[in-house]
Every structure is written in C-alpha cells, then in structure tokens.
Nucleic acid binder design. Sequence first.
DNA 1: AATTAGTATCTTGCATTATAATATACTATG
DNA 2: CATAGTATATTATAATGCAAGATACTAATT
Lengths: 107, 107
Amino acid sequence: MNIQFKKGVLELCVLALLTKKNRYGYDLVNEISKNIEISEGTIYPLLRRLKNVGWVTTYLQESREGAPRKYYKLTQSGQKVTEEMKADWEDFVEKVNGLLSGGDMNE
Amino acid sequence: MNIQFKKGVLELCVLALLTKKNRYGYDLVNEISKNIEISEGTIYPLLRRLKNVGWVTTYLQESREGAPRKYYKLTQSGQKVTEEMKADWEDFVEKVNGLLSGGDMNE
DNA sequence: AATTAGTATCTTGCATTATAATATACTATG
DNA sequence: CATAGTATATTATAATGCAAGATACTAATT
C-alpha cells in the first residue's frame, strides 16, 4: 500500500470514526487496520495534533484489560472540520478520477 | 484543498497523463491545474524522480514560443507501475470510503 | 514468584513529498 | 528595451507516516 496515499486521509478517517462514538487510540488503530494499514507511531502523534488544534477533547477511563484508556471525543469545531474535510476528500477523489480516466475532461 | 491529499497522487496523475501521450513539464502543470492545484516547484522535482527510478525517459524539442521543451515519455516499467498504482489508488479510495460511510464494515 | 502475552500510551529520528520563493533563459509584443 | 508569457530548475521549509523503542498495567502460564 502506497504510504503517500495516506497522508492527510488518516486524519479524516480518525475524525470520521469519532463522529460515530468516542474511541481510544489503540481501538482506533485496530479499527482502521481492518481497512488500511496503520501503526501506533502514526496514531498517537496524530491524536495529539487533533487535540492541540481543538478538534477533540480527551478523558481517561480505567480498563480491566490493561493500562487506562484515553478516550477521544469530537468538539463542535471538530465536527464541523470533519464535514468540510469529508467534502474536500470526495471532491478531490472525483477530480483525480477525472484525470485518471479521461486524461482531460475539457478537451 | 488539503495539500496532504495530494501526496503520492500527483505522481499517479502525471504517470496516467503520460499514458495518453508524451508531455513536457509546463504542459503537465497546466493540464493538471484544470482539476487540481499544482505548482511548478512540485512538478519538476517529481519528474526528476520519475526519471531517476526509470519510469520515464526524456527528450528535448525546440519551441517557437519559449525555451526548449523537455518531453517525458513512459518506459515499459513506467507503464507497469502506472497500472499497479492506479489499482492501488482505487483500492485505497474504496477502503477509505468504507471507513467514512460505514464507520466499520465488519460490525 | 517470575515469565510471557496482550492491552495501551508515548517519543525520537527518519524518509517522503508538496510548495513558496527564487533564478535562469528564450520569444514576442508594445 | 521593458514586459509578459513560455519553460526549466533549485533551495529551504513544512507536514505527516512509520519503524523502533520505552513504559506500564493485567491475566495467564510456568
């Protein structure tokens, strides 16, 4: 799988998953890994960035199975950004596919 | 437009356009710019990489309108890589969309 | 009790790629 | 001769994914 394809898109994937329910980092790795390869060294810095820009908040919760889990919850601005980013992504894919299939849509 | 979305995909766009016909850098910038913002500072290093890994060859051609044009032509390995990369991209988009819409396709 | 495996978070250093800014140079037009 | 359009190229910077490694807790096995 082309690593470069993931740039920026993983952020959107994380945000999109958080619109469904709050999740912790390890859980997000497992969930996303079902579709796309992702490592923990990617997700934790990413989650930290999301928190730094105010798109998520966090809270700790104990677990019977291991270390305490840090849950991530979307903020209002995070929800807004997610919608915008999703629209950007769909637009982008459409334009790329235009280049790939037609070569040129205006010729 | 999210810059990160472009990572790796511009390379595919360039390669895909070259499957149709040989083009020079400035022409590629204009062509791709119809769909996706791209600058010259992006395309020339990219084209150099494509040449370094042997996916394209180049030849110069004079022009009545300005400096001589450096045309890029896909090699056999470049054609093969383009097909593979295109398939990767389609697979990737499908998986991302799975995450974005369903949240989880196996739950 | 000690070891192992699974769960969970985090940091560091590295590689890749897009871009702005800048430089160069040729042609045509005013 | 200055300007605009065409055309190629380089440099320094920013963003992001990842391997590798560290830490720590729980549960099961030895």
